[in-house]
Design a protein around this nucleic acid. Structure first.
Ligand SMILES: [Mn+2]
Ligand SMILES: [Mn+2]
Ligand SMILES: [Zn+2]
Ligand SMILES: [Zn+2]
Lengths: 150, 150
DNA sequence: ATTATTATTGATAATGGTTATCAATATTAT
DNA sequence: ATAATATTGATAACCATTATCAATAATAAT
């Protein structure tokens, strides 16, 4: 049963339908603190809806990215990872600390205000100078986590 | 013929040998303004040394990344791209503006000083708070380039 | 020098995440 | 109803990257 929470309207606005698989995938993304891969999502969804296929997960994620609901990350471990964007997540704007050894990801929000101020300035300057319409940014730190640094 | 420019010593220091293929690959990376993929590099190298294989290019790039000579980027177009790190490049510290439509990449250096100051602060705080040894960072803007934004 | 050890190479095959294809089914518009 | 459109899952294909392996080159030991 589909519980409308505004998603229905949002999908229809883009010519899409809100289906069970799509709702299930959104539900998984809304209720995790992790940075799930397509297959991670597939496996969770699969427990409740064994009929939903991996292909549908990929397709839905593409749509969600295109709708600006989900951000697709590459943390260098060979698979893409997905996270709800700021506007649709209970998490606030944040960036990532990535362990290059074990791929552990840590969300951080330190200095986000200073950062946003800087980003805003940069954004303005760059859009003007290069006639570029900036839609987003990404920033991450690499290193070795507690366990991996020996 | 191998012209030693300090590379030889650097390779030996890590237990590697400076070979013709490795030198050729370094030469390509040193003389481009672009952000080349493994295959891009292979094709250039191949013109002068048809015997060098794509596998060797991948292997050498891995080593160079591991040595801190090269940075491996993911700009979202399905293949990794490589660029000499600040210390080994004539380019200065910079970041990237990426067109999500046509994958055009623009280097920019605006506000790099402010950014480095902020990054430094963030770095200090994060390493302490999460007991993380930070070795690098990445930052990029996404959007639509002049041609693609219409 | 000769020999033993180690590092490097390229061809080839395999891997594995992601996409394309397509016929079946569900939803919506007429 | 009926036609048009969207969505689906199974399957096969794609394609960048890795693993394998025997051949060769460079270095170290004798
Ligand atoms: Mn996160
Ligand atoms: Mn660059
Ligand atoms: Zn780790
Ligand atoms: Zn473009």
């Amino acid at each position: 049963m589909i519980v409308d929470t505004g998603w229905h309207k949002r999908f229809r606005g883009q010519g899409y339908r809100l289906t069970i698989p799509r709702e299930a995938i959104l539900h998984v993304l809304s209720n995790t603190e992790e940075h799930l891969s397509a297959e991670d999502i597939y496996m969770v969804v699969h427990q409740k809806y064994p009929a939903i296929g991996l292909t549908t997960v990929y397709r839905t994620l593409d749509i969600l990215v295109q709708m600006g609901v989900v951000f697709k990350f590459d943390f260098g471990d060979g698979r893409s990872r997905y996270e709800l964007t700021e506007h649709f997540s209970r998490k606030k704007h944040h960036h990532h600390l990535i362990c290059t050894m074990c791929s552990r990801i840590i969300d951080y929000t330190d200095f986000i205000d200073d950062e946003l101020e800087l980003l805003d300035r940069t954004k303005k300057t760059l859009s003007k100078k290069h006639n570029f319409q900036i839609t987003g940014h990404m920033m991450q730190f690499y290193g070795l986590c507690e366990k991996c640094k020996t």
